[in-house]
């Protein structure tokens, strides 16, 4: 439940983590945030019931990049893999929920369900930590650039229904082009 809430979205959890652990936003972290946040947005567009995998994928990437000092390419890759694993873990949790609610008192099923979520997510994160310690991947800006393109390829899920929507999308692009002047010094 907690992992599904809005506060766990990369854009909202980062300020909290940066405040607690004194993490400063740099371009590498910005790329991580953009990639995982965009995946999360488009998983909503696909009609999924907001699975929490990309939120945890982002936190895993942040841990590996900031705390374990891994390269951004490796952290990104690992975050994406963890997201995929958590997708299946979420499906498994829904199956366990059915077993719990039919075999235990509903109040206990509720508590067990929350506990199982927490422990399964934390144990996978610990497993990730153990794996991370054994592997090293060289850093490359080309890789995370490709990841940004991968995010961009999700545009097809926008589902343009009416002409006015396409028109508004193009107006958005136009405003974006105008605003580029504002960020031209940021990168």
């Amino acid at each position: 439940m907690f992992f599904q809430s809005l506060i766990c979205e990369p854009v909202f959890i980062f300020p909290i983590l940066s405040f607690i652990f004194n993490i400063h936003l740099n371009n590498s972290l910005l790329i991580l945030i953009i990639i995982f946040q965009t995946f999360s947005i488009f998983s909503l567009q696909l009609g999924k019931v907001s699975p929490p995998n990309f939120q945890i994928g982002f936190v895993s990437s942040l841990i590996s990049h900031f705390f374990l000092k891994e390269s951004i390419s490796f952290s990104l890759l690992f975050g994406i893999f963890i997201s995929i694993i958590f997708g299946y873990l979420y499906i498994l949790k829904r199956k366990i929920n059915y077993y719990l609610s039919n075999n235990f008192k509903i109040e206990f099923a509720l508590i067990f369900s929350v506990l199982i979520s927490y422990f399964s997510y934390i144990s996978v994160l610990l497993l990730q930590y153990m794996i991370l310690k054994k592997f090293k991947v060289a850093d490359s800006s080309n890789f995370y650039s490709l990841s940004l393109f991968l995010v961009l390829s999700q545009v097809k899920y926008f589902r343009f229904g009416k002409k006015v929507e396409t028109l508004l999308f193009l107006v958005g692009i136009l405003i974006g082009v105008i605003c580029l002047k504002l960020i031209s010094n940021s990168f």
Partner: peptide, 19 residues
């Protein structure tokens, strides 16, 4: 949809700066 358009162009720009 307006934000989508805005966001897409920003992503393209960020990517161009990296590459």
């Amino acid at each position: 949809y307006l934000l989508y358009g805005f966001f897409v162009i920003l992503l393209l720009y960020v990517n161009l700066k990296i590459l």
